[in-house]
Design a protein around this nucleic acid. Structure first.
Lengths: 226, 226
DNA sequence: TGACATCGAATTGTCGACAATCGGAGTCAT
DNA sequence: ATGACTCCGATTGTCGACAATTCGATGTCA
């Protein structure tokens, strides 16, 4: 449900999804040059649709295009991620505040059920911490939906979402933040259930700030080990 | 300085700019079907670059594409604009708060000078209230720049900005909000000069809320007159 | 008369080939 | 040896033609 299945639609849309997936999972390294002919060949399509897909990804900020010099996978340096998390804090905080007044009791209950599922997954452990990471994004997106603001959903869902997933893949391996994150999620749901928008916003902002600190430390270690 | 001159770059980029301009100015009506062959002909280019331009505008939310059914100019209904202004309030509020700590004294002085220019334009009156409207966007964008957050600048500058201009063209004819707006701008600059980020954010949020109320009333009148 | 099937023109999606541009290897002169 | 220049290969940008799909018109039948 998280990843749209593009089995319908144009080749360009299909290529955009496949490329986005390859970029997010790191299959295509950051900063890597994207050769049109090569990619078109590997996808079994002409260069036309592929070029349109690249334009799409450009708008999504997953690739950076330079006229007459091709497209490259975007590089998520410290500053970019810092900016991203700052924007997320504002947008998701806002989403939480509005969601507290707009979500139905049923939706909030579903959110709570989602957290139960996450908790079960964590206890099962299976080593696949990543699954929780995807689930985390699902949690955040459900709240964005709860804001009933289509533009907010687009911004958080279609675009930043992809960048975040990209970041997660880089850092989720050694992330041990799943437990405090789950606890914070629970507090947020409780605030939503109490229809306390201000508290929900505050908690969400803190949650994201915490996530950023965690990511930031990880980047430090990564850079230090070089 | 506001509108990038696309004399450099690919035909697709040129077409994207020309189309964006036509859409924003209302030359292309909301909801109007965009015929690829027709537009390509009028721009003197093939359909390939034009299709890429449409993909670009789609990412900018200026057009909506439906597979196998073509692209249409987006329709700015009440809900869409309401959502837009809500997001703007959050983002520009954030921009203001950060800008208060990041902008140099010189930049703030330039901002103040910009307002002087606006005031002069208003007193000259010339009927062209629209010019102030563009200047208003310039003011807001300068603050976004002051946040030093590239993602924020992109969101406010490249994308929402276009939708706002589109909205302005619809409503600027009878807008008599230039004076209170200028006064609010001055207060914001003063807060920035005092390095009072919280106040600057508060003032900016109120400013945008006021703008939305004004736009909203105008939409009501428009709908009522039908 | 209205609902439905069928056909056709128009439009979108795709491909292959050609032109324009860029990066780099190699060369030459200082 | 180094800097600049030239040429060539590779890649991007663009075009025209063809295939696939949609939407509307037309006609048919209950």
């Amino acid at each position: 449900m998280l990843v749209k299945v593009p089995e319908q639609g144009t080749l360009a849309d299909l290529a955009a999804h496949r490329l986005a997936h390859s970029i997010v999972t790191g299959e295509l390294a950051q900063g890597q040059k994207l050769n049109e002919a090569e990619l078109a060949e590997s996808f079994g399509m002409g260069r036309g649709p592929l070029r349109e897909a690249l334009r799409h990804l450009e708008g999504m900020r997953l690739v950076k295009r330079i006229p007459n010099a091709g497209a490259r996978v975007v590089v998520l340096d410290r500053k970019t991620l810092s900016d991203l998390y700052a924007v997320r804090e504002a947008l998701e905080g806002m989403a939480c505040r509005i969601a507290a007044t707009q979500m139905s009791d049923d939706e909030i209950a579903q959110l709570s059920a989602l957290l139960d599922k996450h908790e079960a997954q964590i206890k099962k452990q299976g080593g696949k911490v990543y699954a929780q990471s995807e689930g985390d994004l699902d949690f955040h997106f459900q709240i964005a939906r709860g804001s009933r603001n289509q533009m907010l959903m687009d911004l958080l869902g279609s675009e930043q979402y992809q960048l975040l997933r990209m970041c997660r893949y880089r850092t989720s391996r050694n992330a041990q933040r799943t437990k405090p994150a789950l606890s914070q999620h629970r507090q947020i749901v409780e605030a939503l259930a109490n229809r306390d928008g201000e508290l929900a916003e505050l908690l969400m902002r803190r949650h994201i700030q915490g996530a950023w600190r965690s990511i930031s430390e990880m980047i430090d270690m990564e850079e230090q080990s070089k």
